[in-house]
């Protein structure tokens, strides 16, 4: 449905995106996972015809994005990173405006957005600027969907959004995907990666890895252990000075640990118990964030 072919984009001497290639299949929920400045927005702006790639080619539904930009514009639903609705227009006015812009009406495509729009319909005479963050987001999504696009492109839709609203938002995306829509979404929240069918981990303009979340996780090179205990910060300092420890990173209430070799585990466990009798050490499955951090130094160098 979407194909990036060796795409490079430079901003003056700075390289925004370097030789990126990937395909998104029809009906797939595809995630671009990476921190701010990794190149996610640049990739999406090229896909939505707002920027021209310096090198490489890019297609959507078999049509070249640069040549057939009119086709793309009629068939892509785009939600940019900044809140992009008219604050001084009401909910209904915003929706009607975008519907007419794409040569359609709200009534014609109501079924598609009903699930989302119903939640904000009670406030339809309220100005968009007066809505809460979660409601603004629902309105923006309704506006991006109103012309029944082939592909939905969402640039960091959950940035700055609280955990509850983020969860609701992903539930909405899942339902849209079930309806057959192809969705590309970018996020800096690593935990959201597992909600995608496939993810590209991106850092400094390059894709470090591209696979299903399960495959990314199973590709993690070493056994991983979690140490749980009180006063994480002190525990962390203690672990880092152990010679057998390669890396020790805080993850919420525990510390994720990789060791120089698997057989070192008993020694390490013994040292930990000596220092902290109450600490618990166990082998765990890595998270996407572990994988991301593991991949990072490689591209850093």
């Amino acid at each position: 449905m979407v194909e990036f072919n060796h795409i490079t984009k430079k901003y003056g001497p700075v390289t925004g995106v370097q030789g990126v290639s990937f395909k998104v299949n029809p009906g797939e929920l595809f995630g671009l996972i990476g921190p701010d400045g990794a190149g996610k927005t640049t990739l999406f702006r090229m896909l939505t015809t707002l920027l021209l790639p310096d090198e490489g080619s890019l297609s959507m539904a078999g049509k070249d994005v640069v040549q057939d930009y009119r086709f793309v514009r009629s068939n892509v639903g785009y939600m940019p990173g900044t809140f992009s609705l008219y604050q001084d227009l009401t909910v209904a006015e915003n929706l009607n405006f975008f519907a007419t812009l794409f040569g359609t009406t709200v009534a014609a495509n109501y079924a598609l957005i009903e699930d989302i729009y119903r939640q904000i319909e009670p406030y339809k005479t309220r100005r968009a600027g007066d809505l809460s963050g979660g409601m603004k987001q629902k309105l923006a999504l309704s506006c991006a969907l109103i012309h029944r696009p082939l592909v939905l492109v969402l640039d960091e839709p959950t940035t700055g959004v609280d955990a509850v609203s983020r969860k609701e938002f992903w539930e909405m995306l899942k339902r849209l995907q079930a309806g057959g829509l192809t969705i590309l979404v970018s996020t800096a929240y690593m935990d959201e990666a597992t909600l995608c069918d496939r993810v590209a981990l991106i850092q400094e303009g390059r894709i470090m890895q591209l696979d299903t979340p399960e495959q990314v996780i199973s590709g993690f090179s070493r056994p991983l252990y979690a140490v749980k205990g009180e006063r994480i910060h002190r525990l962390l300092e203690f672990l880092r000075q152990l010679p057998q420890v390669v890396s020790a990173q805080p993850f919420g209430d525990s510390i994720h640990l990789t060791l120089v070799a698997e057989h070192c585990l008993p020694e390490v466990q013994a040292s930990i118990l000596q220092e902290r009798p109450d600490a618990v050490t166990e082998a765990i499955t890595p998270t996407i964030e572990d994988c991301f951090m593991d991949l990072m130094p490689a591209t850093h160098g």
């Binding site: 990476g34 921190p35 701010d36 990794a38 960091e156 940035t159 700055g160 800096a188 690593m190 850092q203 910060h233 962390l236 990173q249 805080p250 964030e289 991301f292 951090m293 990072m296």
Partner: peptide, 17 residues
């Protein structure tokens, strides 16, 4: 106020340290 929004995971941890 949300000091680590959008920051990469390694830097985020350094920040907490």
């Amino acid at each position: 106020d949300e000091p680590t929004g959008g920051v990469d995971p390694v830097t985020r941890r350094q920040f907490w340290e």
